[in-house]
Design a protein around this nucleic acid. Structure first.
Lengths: 222, 222, 222, 222
DNA sequence: AATGAATGAGCGTTCATTCAT
DNA sequence: GATGAATGAACGCTCATTCAT
C-alpha cells in the first residue's frame, strides 16, 4: 500500500512528465503556491494544506523542503523582493531627459504593482504584523534596491539642469511615487465602496496613472 | 503575563471596579479589546480568548453579545468608520481661505491616521481579504463620509477664485491626500527597512507631513 | 431597557391576546414544543433554545417551570403515556362479538400510532437510552394501561366460545398486535429504502393495516 | 472506570500489544468503538472523545481517517448493513421443506437481532432522525439484501405445493417476521416496565421466539 | 412571578508539526 | 531522499444551567 507501484502507474498515465521527483521543481511549485496562498489569506489565514494541494505536493514535503510555515513565508517574501530588485535593475532609463525618465519610473512602479498583486498584498500583510517576519530575513536586508539609485541620478540631472526644484529629497520623491500607486491598489476594496466607483476598471486605472504622473511632475517641478 | 499593573491602570479609569452586571459596559469592553486584537493580528490571527481576557469577560459572553467572530469583527469595522465620520463631521473649516482650509484638511487626515493606528490596520487587513467582511455590513454602506463634501466645497471656492487649477477632480485630490498619509504609516515597517531610516521618529513624521502638504498644494495650484 | 414598556407595546399590537402571563398556558406551550422537539431530535439532540423559541418563551422560563432538561423530558414522556391511557380507557368495545372487538382493538392501536408519531418516536428514543429516564418517573409506574384488561376480556370471551385458541396469552397477543403496527411506523425510513417502496403512502398504510388484522386473526383463530 | 480488566481482555485478543503503526488496525479499532458508542448514545449523544479513548486512539485520528463525526457514523451504519447482508448470504436453506426453511429464517432473523444489539439500536436511532444520515450513503443504497430473495423462493415453493396460502406477499411476510422480532428487542425497556416482566430473561426470550414462529406459520398456512 | 445577564464545561474540529521508517 | 501515520494544542463555538434582582 506504500511505495512504488502507484507512482509507476502515474508514470504510464503521464508518460513524458518532465522530471518527476525533481526536487527543484517540487520546491518551486510549492513556493509558487505559497506565494499565492499568503497573498490571498495573509500569514495566519494561510493554510499549509491548501499550499501543498495547490503545489501538487504534500504537507510533509513542505516541512521537508522549508522547515516551517514561517520559513516558507520568509522565503516567499524574499523571492518577491528579489524579483522586484531584478526588474528595477533591468530598467534602462535615458537620463538625457530627466523629466521623461521620471515619468518612465512612475509608470514602471505603477505597472509593477498592477502586474504583481502578490507584492502589494505580501507587503501589506507584513506591515500588519509590524514587520515581524521580514526582520528575520538576512537575505532581505542584504538586497539592494536599485530604484533609489536610479531615482537619485534622475533627480541629480534634473536639479542640475534646473528643470526640477533644487531642494528635492530622493526618499520623499520615492515615497510620493510609491504611495500614490500602492495605496490605490492596496486599498481598492474599501476605497471602491467609499468612493462609489470601481477602481479596478481599466479606464479608472488608466486615469489614475495619468493623475499620479501629473502629481509627481507637479511635486518636482522647479 | 498576568497581573497587577495593567489592571491597576484600568482601575483608575473605571474607579470603583466596574459594576459587574453592566451589559453596556461589558459589551463596550469586549468591543474595545476586539478592536485592539484585530488591529494587532488581523482577522485570522485574532484570538477570541485573547479578546475575552483583555476585555475582562469570557469567550461565552462574546457569543452572547455578538454571535460570532465575524460579526464581532464587522462591528469593530463599523465602529471605526463611525468614529472617522464623526470626526470629519466635527471639522469646522473656514472656506474664506481655501488654501488654508485644504492644508487643514491634510493635517486633519494625517493626524487622524496617526492617532488611530487601528483604523489604518483594520482597513489594511480588510483589503487584504478583498473586502470579504465589509461587504456584509449594511451599516458601513449607509454611513456618510463627510470628507468628500468638505473637500468638494474647498475645491469649488478655490477653483472659482482661480487659486486652484480649474480641472480638479475631488476624488483624485482626496486619493492623493489620503495615499500620501496612509501609505507612509501603513507600510512603515517595510519602508523603514528599505529606506534605512525610522519613519516613526517624531521628527521624520513632522517632515513627512510638511512634504505631504507641499505635494498636495503643488498638485492643486493653478 | 428591562421591564414593562415593551410588553405594553405588545399588548396594543395583539389586543385580545388571551391571558398573557398566564403561567398555565406558558407551561402548556413549552410542554407541547418540548414534545415536538424531543420527538424530532431525541433527548441529546433536543435543544432547550429551540423549545423555548417554539413555545414563544425563554430558556429561563423552562428552568423556572420544569427545573431541568431531564425533568422536562420526563414530563413529556408522562404526558404521552397519560394520553394513551385516556384514549384506551375511552374505548367502548362490544364484547358480544370478540372477533370484531379484537379487530377494533387492532385498528385502534394502529390508528393511535399513526395519529401520534410523537408517541412512537419518544418510546423509540427512550429505549435507545435503555429506559434511562422512564425509570425515574414515579408517575409512569403508577399509570394503569387499560389495554391489557380490555384485551384480556376479549380473549376470555373468545376462548370461552371456542372462536379463539384456548392457549392464548394476553401479553403475547398484545405484543404481536403492537409489534406489527409499531415496527412498520418506527422503522419506516430504513424499511422504505430497503423494500424500495414508500411505506408512508396512504394506500400502502391501508394495505398494511389489512395485513396486520389478517395476521392477528390467524394467530388467535381456534 | 480506568484500568486493567477490559484492556487485559483485549491484550489477549491482540497478543503482543498492537503494532502502534498499523493504520488498518487503528481504523478498525476506531470503527468498532464508534459502533458501540453510537449504539449506546445515538448520534447526538455520542462523543468523539469517548470513541477515541475506547479505540485507544485520539480525536485527531478520527478526523484523519474519517473526516467528521457524521462520516464516521455513516461508515458505522454501512458496516452493520454489510455484515447483515453477509450473514444472510451465508444462509444455506433447504428448500425441499419450505415450512422448515421458513422457521429457520425466522430463527436466523431473531438470532441476528439478539446477537447484534448494535444493529437494532443503530436502525432505531437512524429512524428517529428520519433517515437523515442513511440517505447520504451511496454504499447502503447499492447493497443487496439477500433475505428477500431467499424468502421469495421459500414462499414460491410453499405456495406451489399448497402448504402456504396462495396470496402471500413476500414483503408482508418479511415485515411480519422482522416486526415481531425487532419490536420485542428494540422496545424491551418500555415493554418490560409496561408488562411487568423482564423480557430479557433467557426463558422469556425463548418463549417469544416460539410465539413468533407460531404466528408466522399461522400467517402463511394455507 | 418573572427575567436579562452571565457562566463552566465541553463540543466537534483544525492547526502546524513530528514520528518512524 | 522521501513519505504515510500520528499528534498536542488550541481553535471557534454551543451546551444546559445559575446568578442576581
Amino acid at each position: 500500500m506504500i511505495g512504488g507501484p502507484p507512482n509507476a502507474v502515474l508514470e504510464i498515465i503521464t508518460p513524458a512528465m518532465p522530471a518527476r521527483r525533481d526536487p527543484e521543481l517540487t520546491r518551486a511549485r510549492i513556493l509558487r503556491a505559497a506565494r499565492n496562498e499568503f497573498m490571498r489569506h495573509g500569514y495566519s489565514g494561510a493554510r499549509i494544506e491548501r499550499i501543498s494541494r495547490a503545489g501538487r505536493s504534500s504537507d510533509r514535503m513542505i516541512y521537508y523542503y522549508f522547515g516551517s510555515k514561517e520559513a516558507l513565508y520568509i522565503e516567499v517574501l524574499e523571492s518577491v523582493y528579489v524579483e522586484l530588485g531584478a526588474a528595477e535593475a533591468a530598467l534602462a532609463l535615458d537620463l538625457a531627459d530627466p523629466e521623461a525618465a521620471l515619468v518612465r519610473l512612475v509608470e514602471f512602479t505603477w505597472g509593477y504593482y498592477v502586474a504583481h498583486p502578490e507584492f502589494v498584498a505580501l507587503l501589506a500583510n507584513e506591515n500588519l504584523l509590524r514587520g515581524k517576519h521580514i526582520t528575520k530575513s538576512v537575505k532581505v536586508k542584504q538586497l539592494s534596491r536599485p530604484v533609489l539609485d536610479i531615482l537619485e541620478r534622475i533627480l541629480a540631472v534634473g536639479m542640475e539642469r534646473g528643470v526640477f526644484r533644487a531642494d528635492l529629497d530622493v526618499r520623499n520623491v520615492y515615497l510620493t511615487m510609491a504611495a500614490l500607486g500602492y495605496f490605490y491598489l492596496s486599498n481598492r476594496y474599501t476605497l471602491s465602496s467609499f468612493l462609489g466607483i470601481d477602481l479596478l476598471q481599466p479606464e479608472a486605472r488608466r486615469r489614475w496613472l495619468a493623475e499620479v504622473t501629473r502629481v509627481v511632475r507637479a511635486a518636482v517641478r522647479a
